[in-house]
């Protein structure tokens, strides 16, 4: 099992802020919109340095999505920013009609996704957003794992022609991917090659998967770990190739079991290569208030849970 050294923990939302600020310097067509959460989204540097391209829309998310769709007409590349909950379930119809169905080049930046938003509780902890967004035709769904990858994904989203849902979060997590990485939308990243079981993980759960890999190695189990940063389009080829090699699969995500990464992967495998799949996800329930660590433990989203499901999947071979 490979080691993944890192020097610091950072929040993925700051990776977005850094990527957006970089885009402000390099791409004059990039504009930012925010619904009264500029510091939370780490959009303040962009707002300060590119004020003519930053639009404060107030607490009016539906209008923000519509504005962004309209701004694309004439060549702008809008990034909208608010919490994941307020930019998916609250405005699903606006995204569906004005962005996705209209094929507009809007980048929907979603922070504070999942349980790790923490103390604010279930009103704010959206666990259904990946499902909603991946169901929309034309939509690309990205959920990077650390600061560096989120920054790279933000830049890649601007280069991609079409609507993108970019999901990230609040907690500080190990920043272990390369600072100079080129982010390829739709390309699964092999983190550790193994032969006994594959762990497909996305977002914050990638680090948990790495920790699970170490625990499994101590038990003599050789886990393959794949970072699925793009849930749609899914890297079907990589999923099938890995499942073929290991014959057992675990998916890990900070999302409902319904509608998430696990569902996408099991869908592919049931069609192409029936394989035992176990799911680490939130099991069709709402979250609650607590610290991120407490919540991840209570709802079964820790490395230990991945290990348990890996053993179960192997047992089903």
């Amino acid at each position: 099992m490979k080691d993944f050294p890192y020097t610091e923990k950072k929040d993925t939302r700051s990776g977005f802020g850094a990527g957006l600020h970089e885009l402000g310097k390099t791409n004059p067509n990039v504009v930012g919109l925010c619904a009264d959460l500029t510091p939370s989204l780490k959009m303040d540097a962009f707002a300060k340095d590119f004020p003519e391209r930053f639009f404060q829309v107030g607490i009016a998310e539906a209008n923000m999505i519509g504005l962004a769709a309209g701004m694309t007409i004439g060549g702008k590349i809008p990034f909208t920013g608010t919490f994941a909950n307020f930019t998916t379930s609250r405005v699903f119809d606006q995204i569906r009609q004005s962005v996705s169905y209209s094929g507009k080049n809007v980048k929907i930046a979603a922070s504070h996704s999942g349980l790790t938003l923490g103390e604010d509780g279930a009103t704010h902890q959206v666990l259904e957003d990946i499902g909603m967004m991946k169901m929309l035709p034309h939509m690309t769904v990205i959920n990077p794992c650390d600061f560096n990858q989120t920054k790279a994904a933000t830049i890649a989203a601007a280069e991609h022609d079409g609507p993108v849902y970019l999901r990230f979060g609040r907690p500080s997590v190990p920043n272990f991917t390369p600072a100079d990485q080129k982010f390829e939308i739709g390309k699964a990243l092999m983190l550790n090659e193994g032969k006994d079981v594959t762990i497909f993980a996305t977002g914050h759960m990638v680090w948990e998967a790495i920790e699970a890999g170490h625990i499994l190695a101590e038990k003599g189990i050789d886990a393959e770990i794949v970072n699925i940063h793009t849930i749609k389009p899914l890297d079907v080829e990589a999923v099938i190739a890995s499942a073929k090699k290991t014959g057992a699969v675990v998916t890990a995500e900070e999302h409902q079991i319904n509608g998430g990464l696990g569902e996408s992967i099991s869908g592919v495998l049931s069609r192409e290569l029936p394989t035992p799949v176990e799911f680490v996800a939130v099991m069709d329930t709402f979250g609650e208030s607590g610290t991120p660590a407490q919540l991840m433990e209570k709802y079964g989203l820790k490395a230990e849970n991945i290990v348990e499901k890996a053993l179960k999947a192997i047992g089903r071979k």
Partner: peptide, 13 residues
């Protein structure tokens, strides 16, 4: 209900 937002965005562009 969506057109006024879209038009305002296009006008700003």
């Amino acid at each position: 209900g969506q057109g006024l937002s879209v038009a305002a965005g296009a006008a700003q562009t």
